[in-house]
Simulated scan of single mutants.
Amino acid sequence: MSKKSVLAVDDGITMRLFYREVLEKAGFVVEEAANGIEGLERALMTRFDLMVVDINMPKMNGYEMVRQMRDNPALRSIPVLTVSTEEKEGDVVKAYDAGANFYLVKPVRPDDLAAAARLLTGSVA
């Protein structure tokens, strides 16, 4: 069985490296994008099993990226895990309203990230 693929979209290189390290250790193949526009372009070129999307990014924030994914038939069915420093209930609701499937607050614990990725992709531990 082939490994599930994840696109980590975050403007912080340290966060992208964190996602890569944790998710590769959990058995995923990980690619990266530095903002929402780049993330959408990558998702349209390559089929991913999961998108890990930061909320606060330049050029296009995570809310808008997820909204555009949900409006695009080619991307609509890809699960999205949003990650943010914002932890107010309104921020969480805004992410779910945009179309996110799951929301984690930074700093993300590695085991929580891996468990959410497995859950959203239907992967076994």
Rank of each mutant, 00 (worst) to 15 (best):
K3H: 08
V6E: 00
V6A: 00
V9A: 01
I13H: 10
T14G: 06
F18G: 01
F18P: 03
Y19C: 11
V22R: 02
E24N: 08
K25P: 00
F28L: 03
F28D: 04
F28Y: 04
V30P: 13
E31W: 03
E31Q: 13
G36Y: 06
I37R: 15
I37D: 13
G39Y: 06
L44K: 15
M45Y: 09
F48M: 11
D49Y: 08
N56W: 09
P58H: 09
K59N: 14
N61T: 07
G62F: 00
G62I: 01
M65L: 15
M69K: 08
P73F: 12
P79G: 05
L81T: 00
T82C: 14
V83C: 09
V83L: 07
S84M: 09
E89T: 10
V93C: 05
K94R: 14
A95N: 00
A95K: 05
A95F: 00
A98W: 02
G99R: 03
A100I: 03
A100R: 02
L104E: 04
L104F: 09
V108T: 07
V108A: 01
R109F: 05
R109V: 12
D111N: 10
A114S: 13
A115D: 13
A115Y: 08
A116F: 01
L119P: 03
T121N: 00
